[in-house]
């Protein structure tokens, strides 16, 4: 039997490398949303239209992760006292962590 491929669709999926295993990821896992806007990391912040490199994540040395635009909006206010919204420690942006 001979099979002739007439056409095909390539499908790709992407995730930010947040250092958590994709095995533990499920649709309603609260851990995978930005704590500020509550949109998944792979979605974009409410000010953007396209997810991806134009709406990146930002990592804190405290290990907390947000959409960069969401965090900058917060840090830009005097009320934030430049603290991480999660633990109120001074926000220090970490080098993007890439596991192995």
């Amino acid at each position: 039997m001979k099979v002739k491929v007439k056409n095909w669709h390539a499908i790709a999926q992407w995730r930010w490398d947040t250092g958590t295993s994709s095995d533990t990821h499920d649709a309603d896992d609260e851990g995978d949303v930005c704590g500020i806007c509550r949109v998944p990391y792979e979605g974009c912040c409410p000010s953007c239209k396209m997810p991806g490199d134009d709406c990146p994540l930002i990592w804190g040395e405290c290990t907390h992760i947000f959409h960069m635009h969401c965090l900058l909006k917060w840090i830009g206010t005097a009320a934030s006292k430049q603290q991480c919204p999660m633990d109120r420690r001074p926000w220090v942006t970490a080098e993007r962590k890439i596991n192995n």
Binding site: C37, R38, V39, C45, S47, K73
Partner: peptide, 10 residues
């Protein structure tokens, strides 16, 4: 931002 976040909370 507010409307979309509130929608999710609701």
């Amino acid at each position: 931002m507010s409307t979309r976040r509130l929608q999710k909370e609701l």
